[in-house]
Amino acid sequence: MSAYTWVRKALDVSQLPRVKLNNIQDLPGAKRKAVRVGRGPGSGKGKTCGRGHKGQGQRNKAAIRVGFEGGQTPFYLRVPKRGFRNKNQTHYVPLNLNRVQYLIDSGRIDASQTVNMHTLQQSGAVGRIKHGVKLLATGSEWFESKVNIEVSQASRKAIETIQKVGGQITTAHYNALGLRVLLKPWRFEDRLQPRRALPNKKLMAYYLNPENRGYLVVTEEGRERLRDGGMEGAYLGDDGRVHIPGKRVTLYSQPSPPGPDRLVGPVGGLDKQESVRGHESQSEPQTTDTGTEV
C-alpha cells in the first residue's frame, strides 16, 4: 500500500469541487495492465510470447507438479518421514502488559469495567483466540492502570504487577465451547446457555492454585462450579496433586517449575484468609522426586 493512499484518505472534500461520476478515479497502480503477448518484437513479448522454444513448457500451462524432478525419485519421497504433530497442543495468545496499558490509555479498553477475553478481543488487544489468552509481564515497569482482568493464564510477574497497582486478576478456564459462549455471546442469545466445564485433570492444579489466582479458589463463582462438578473442597496439596475430599482419587497435576521469585504474601482481592504458603518453600526450594513444589 502506498503512501498515496493515506494522502487520499486525508482528502478534504469539502474544499473540492463536487465529487461526480466524471471526476473520480482509482489509485494509481491499483490496476495492472495485462501484457499483450505476440504483438511484435518491440513489445519484448513478441515471437515466443515469453514461453521459450518448443516442448511442454510452451504448450501446457502448469502440467509439471510441484516437487517433480524429471522422473528421478524426488526429494520429498527420498527422505523418510520424521516428527509428529501434537494434536493436544494448546496455544495461549500472549498478551503483554504494555499493550493492555496502551489500549487503556488510548481509550479502547475501559478499565473501570471488568476486562475479560471478550473485551480484549473486541478492543483488538488480541486477534483470534484459540484456547485462551496468557498475560505476560513486558511493560510491567510502567504499567499503572487499576484493572479487574480475567484471562486464561498469567505469568507470575504479571499477576504481581497488576496487584501491585491495586488491580485484580483471575485466571479462568474456558474450554472450546465456553470460549465460544464468552467470545460470541450473540450466538447463544436464543439458546440454552451451556454449562461451563471444569478444567481437565492437567489444568485442575493450575486453577486450584491461589498463586496463579485460579478462579476455582479465588472467586465465588469458581467455587460454585467446583461444587456443581461434585468436587467441593478440592485443593492442591503440597505434593502437587489435586486432592478431592471424600474421594480416593487424586489428580496428578503438572508440576510448576520451581523458581526463585515466588509470589509471597496475601494474594489480595477477594479473601483475606487466603495467604499463600511459601515462606518455607522460599527459604529452601524443594526438589522432590515428583519435581513438584507449588
Partner: peptide, 8 residues
C-alpha cells in the same frame, strides 16, 4: 474517509 478510489 473520502475514499474516492473506492467510489470509482
Amino acid at each position: 474517509p473520502p475514499r474516492i478510489d473506492i467510489l470509482h
